[in-house]
């Protein structure tokens, strides 16, 4: 006797795929954003190099963050990591050495975060919150509380120029990072096991997965990517600002959440995060082009974020039913008793 059924047919496969993916509502939001922006502020697309740059700015840190969130952990220290790595890099006269040291610092920060979470056993929200403050302070101390200029400003300005067409080095690095993480999380065993660690940690442990090592890897990825963003920002701006990254933390969490990454872990993908970053980036550029004030922009982004979360498919089904029953009740109430 055989149990179970094999799904067959193209339609069935497509339906299955749609039901399995977590990016659905992010995709719908992105489509809505694109349609509305295309009608009302098409400059956002004709000036696509700018939009791409903004997406890369928001998205890069979000990609690293996704690796950690997939395991059900949080990394609030990314913004400070970005600032401190930029300051370290600018403080070292040799550009190449500065970049290497800054990236190493990012990995080291990830290791410290992971030690607190794995060995000391502190909740990652609290551990990385502590690191957020400590690293911000460190950035101020290293920089003596003022922006640190790059010794080689021309190199920085050259770095900001497009390579091919609209593709600046930042956009290129973002694309490479995206592909690398996508491959890591879908094709590499260690990365794929992030989902197991986030989905059911006990089961992952019982199956012989080195859970602690995976958590270390995740925080190291997140720290490295944040440091990479710090290096890119410092190069593009020709100076490192110790207060940098104030807008990065919340924007990258927003991108991940809009893209369907679940904060409790196990669900989501970097594709989703890319979709979230695209939605946010296009929206921000369009609103800026339309002359909408930053404060108003924030209201938009907050609303989009909340809508992305409350339009969870199961919630939607319940909502549809409750609307139906609401009207049914109204009808019944018409009948006198």
């Amino acid at each position: 006797m055989k149990l179970g059924t094999e799904q067959s047919g193209l339609l069935g496969r497509v339906r299955n795929l749609a039901a399995r993916r977590t990016e659905g509502r992010g995709l719908i939001l992105l489509a809505l954003v694109i349609i509305v922006v295309a009608i009302l502020e098409p400059t956002a697309f004709t000036a696509y190099s700018v939009t791409l740059g903004r997406v890369a700015l928001i998205g890069l840190v979000a990609l690293g963050l996704t690796a950690v969130i997939l395991m059900g952990e949080l990394d609030l220290s990314v913004a400070s990591t970005l600032a401190v790595s930029g300051v370290i890099m600018a403080s070292i006269p040799d550009l190449g050495l500065g970049i290497v040291v800054a990236l190493a610092a990012g990995i080291l920060i990830g290791i410290v975060n992971a030690v607190f979470v794995v060995y000391v056993g502190i909740n990652s929200f609290i551990a990385t919150l502590g690191m957020l403050f400590a690293l911000r302070g460190l950035a101020f101390v290293i920089s003596d509380e003022k922006p640190v200029r790059l010794s080689n400003i021309d190199a920085g300005i050259a770095f900001g120029a497009p390579l091919i067409g609209p593709v600046t080095p930042r956009v290129l690095i973002f694309i490479v990072a995206f592909i690398a993480l996508q491959v890591f999380l879908t094709r590499v065993r260690a990365g794929r096991e992030f989902y197991a660690v986030g989905g059911n940690r006990q089961a992952a442990f019982d199956a012989g997965i080195p859970v602690r090592r995976r958590i270390f890897t995740g925080f190291m990825i997140s720290g490295f990517v944040a440091a990479l963003a710090g290096v890119i920002n410092t190069l593009e701006r020709t100076a490192a600002d110790p207060t940098a990254g104030s807008s990065v933390l919340l924007a990258s969490f927003a991108a991940a959440i809009i893209g369907g990454v679940v904060l409790t872990g196990g669900r989501g993908s970097v594709v989703g995060t890319l979709i979230g970053a695209l939605s946010l980036g296009i929206l921000q550029v369009a609103l800026t082009l339309s002359g909408v004030q930053t404060d108003i922009q924030d209201i938009f982004i907050g609303s989009i974020l909340l809508i992305a979360v409350i339009t969870d498919p199961t919630q939607l089904r319940a909502a549809a039913a409750s609307v139906r029953s609401f009207f049914q009740r109204r009808e019944k109430a018409q009948i006198p008793t």
């Binding site: 509305v36 339309s290 339009t311 909502a319 609401f326």
Partner: peptide, 19 residues
């Protein structure tokens, strides 16, 4: 459960009004 339905309508409205 009423919120999501209202939310979906709101998103289009928000975007349109903003831009």
């Amino acid at each position: 459960t009423m919120f999501p339905a209202a939310g979906l309508l709101a998103v289009a409205g928000l975007l349109l009004s903003g831009c």
